[in-house]
Simulated scan of single mutants.
Amino acid sequence: MRRETLGSANFRVLLTPHPSPLTILLTTFVLLFALAGCAKETPVYHEQSFVFGTMVDVTIAGEEPARARELSSKVLADFDYLHRTLHAWEPGALSRMNAVFAQSPSKVAVVPGLVPIIQDATRLSEMSGGLFNPAIGKLIKLWGFQGDEFTPQQPDPREIKALVQANPRMTDIVFEGILFYSKNPAVQLDLGGYAKGYALDLAAEYLRTQGVKGALINIGGNIIAIGSRGGQPWRVGVQHPRKAGAIASLELHDGEAIGTSGDYQRYFEFDGKRYCHIIDPRTGYPAQGVQAVTVLIPKGSHAGTLSDVASKPAFIAGVKGWRTAAQAMGAESAMLIDERGEVYLTAAMNKRLEFQEKGLVFHEVP
């Protein structure tokens, strides 16, 4: 990871516009869990790319190399298309929608493929009680987190207050046939907390239709499993929020998905305080007091999407409210690591995880 000092010894920023050596190391570490012990007779194909602003890994087991390469290339091409379509600030379908929202109540024809995505994101936002809120793109931009190389900044508190009071919500978006508009000009969509999971579900569905019996897809720590690797479950690592490598590992069964939200991926520090990219819609400020939240989602048609979305409300809710927030999203297996490094986890998650580090402080909840 590349750290740069900007203007003050008190001001530190993490910039990750491209895969850094540490990012590659962590990704490789996860895949070592996944591939270790594969039966020699089971061919395993692995391909990496950089999409959605993060490292992406596609691992396919049990297919001949040429076919696995073809399948993997199709998955990565679909990811690239989704990335361009759902990008919040670069030219694309979503950024064009955001331009229309700013001119509300103007009505414009919608790109059909976006309708079910936005409707699903709205449903999940309502499930979370608004803690997952893709409509707060203006707040994310205000904090400088919309950019491959962001400029850290301390926004004017008056601007933050004004955006919070404007209360942009997903339910402000209205579809009328082929037209759309927003009832609230403060709405600006940022699907960064949804798109990776949605992509996992599409990829898993595609690979299953192609008869693939074993695959593991990892988009920046959001991972979904298909089948097994030569009859053995896939084994994956959960990234340590403060160290290289994994804090724990687990077997990921067919159809299960796991996702982590952390304060270590995109953040800056000012006067010794860390400000991450996960914004609390209630306050307009980056969520505090949590290093990481991991959720394990059971097999289902939206497991990948939930693995991406469900960790955000729990992260924002913090130590006092994370369990309720995770349950509301259907995540019975969940873990939170607080700012001191203490581990809070559900009984269901505790049964699945094998921790790599000794001396951790644990708090188990039902």
Score class of each variant (00 low, 15 high):
residue 117 I to S: 01
residue 74 K to C: 04
residue 98 N to V: 00
residue 71 L to K: 09
residue 159 E to C: 05
residue 335 M to D: 03
residue 103 Q to F: 03
residue 135 A to E: 02
residue 250 L to N: 06
residue 213 K to S: 14
residue 10 N to S: 15
residue 55 M to I: 15
residue 133 N to A: 06
residue 363 H to Y: 13
residue 290 V to M: 08
residue 193 G to P: 06
residue 350 N to E: 12
residue 231 G to C: 12
residue 90 E to F: 09
residue 337 I to D: 03
residue 36 A to K: 13
residue 276 C to I: 10
residue 133 N to P: 05
residue 341 G to Q: 10
residue 1 M to P: 07
residue 3 R to H: 12
residue 96 R to L: 11
residue 287 A to C: 10
residue 106 S to W: 05
residue 325 A to D: 01
residue 112 P to S: 10
residue 209 T to R: 14
residue 116 P to S: 04
residue 82 L to K: 09
residue 117 I to G: 01
residue 70 E to K: 13
residue 57 D to W: 04
residue 328 A to K: 14
residue 12 R to N: 07
residue 46 H to L: 15
residue 92 G to C: 07
residue 232 Q to P: 03
residue 212 V to Q: 08
residue 243 K to P: 00
residue 210 Q to L: 03
residue 30 V to S: 13
residue 342 E to V: 10
residue 212 V to H: 08
residue 56 V to R: 00
residue 191 L to P: 00
residue 302 H to F: 08
residue 8 S to K: 07
residue 118 I to W: 11
residue 86 L to F: 09
residue 357 E to I: 06
residue 229 R to I: 15
residue 283 T to D: 03
residue 312 K to L: 08
residue 36 A to E: 14
residue 272 G to Q: 06
residue 27 T to C: 13
residue 246 A to T: 09
residue 46 H to A: 13
residue 279 I to K: 04
residue 257 A to I: 10
residue 264 Y to I: 04
residue 185 P to I: 00
residue 310 A to N: 06
residue 214 G to T: 03
